[in-house]
């Protein structure tokens, strides 16, 4: 397996053109970014609102139970239903992005909501007590304190979308999934395996990038069990490990 993989990767034909690695990689990242952005614009404000006001909590439960719907099924339904209504290349891209965004909503919503919920009620109370307006409470206290869980939601969503985007090649989407799906279809195992390696590496890398961003953005004061200044470095690591805590949203890698 290794030799055939190596020869696939060293074949210059696989590094150029529409079906070349750079282009597929770029497509994959672009789909992921678009889907996450669309989902974030909807889910994060909604999660903040539900967490802040405590209203409409059923939205979070609903989104969570929607995870029982198989991603593959969702992909097919949206594609069959929307595909004929859209013309040209967009016919494949738009339904896929919609599904990817839909899949990113539950982890983002649950992470944001859980983050705001987890804010120490005394800190929220103090924020009102010192004369912050509701918007200031949200911006200066609730959001910064929600960040650790919000980030774990974002990271779950990103992994979910990267994974599902490769499956979406089956409804003719581009991206790294093409190697997987085409490789399987053509019985070209090296190509499929190379696609698998690329997707896995991309997922790990993206997660690592978000872990780094999280470490920079989240206040060191929020590290779990953060007593003692010396423990700071180690503690922000554990924030990062906290990310996939089972009590908070866990994604289903599709």
């Amino acid at each position: 397996m290794i030799p055939s993989l190596v020869s696939w990767f060293t074949d210059p034909a696989n590094w150029s053109g529409e079906d070349g690695i750079p282009n597929r990689l770029l497509e994959h990242v672009a789909y992921t970014a678009e889907a996450i952005l669309v989902a974030a614009v909807v889910a994060i404000p909604l999660g903040l609102w539900v967490g802040h006001t405590g209203r409409a909590r059923w939205l979070v439960s609903l989104a969570n139970s929607a995870r029982a719907v198989p991603t593959l099924g969702l992909l097919f339904v949206v594609s069959l239903w929307l595909g004929p209504r859209i013309t040209g290349d967009l016919a494949f891209v738009v339904p896929s992005i919609i599904v990817l965004a839909l899949l990113a909503v539950p982890p983002l919503l649950a992470g944001t909501y859980a983050g705001v919920q987890a804010v120490d009620p005394a800190a929220r109370d103090a924020a009102k007590g010192v004369g912050m307006t509701p918007l200031q409470v949200l911006r200066q206290v609730e959001v910064p304190n929600a960040l650790p869980l919000l980030f774990s939601g974002v990271r779950s969503a990103v992994l979910q979308v990267v994974a599902t985007a490769s499956v979406a090649a089956v409804i003719s989407l581009g991206g790294l999934g093409r190697y997987l799906i085409d490789g399987i279809a053509l019985g070209d195992y090296p190509r499929a395996a190379a696609g698998a390696v690329l997707v896995a590496v991309l997922a790990v890398l993206l997660d690592g990038v978000f872990a780094l961003v999280q470490r920079r953005v989240v206040s060191p004061g929020l590290a779990p069990g953060g007593r003692g200044v010396s423990g700071r470095g180690k503690d922000s690591r554990s924030v990062e490990v906290e990310a996939d805590s089972p009590s908070t949203p866990v994604r289903a890698p599709a």
Binding site: A122, A123, A126, G129, G131, V141, P144, V218, G221
Partner: peptide
């Protein structure tokens, strides 16, 4: 005005209520 009123009064709350994310 609520916010104004509160900014003009020091309030020490029962359970500390320090902001954990701020120094």
């Amino acid at each position: 005005n609520e916010a104004q009123l509160r900014r003009g009064m020091g309030y020490v709350i029962q359970h500390g209520g320090l902001f954990p994310h701020r120094t």
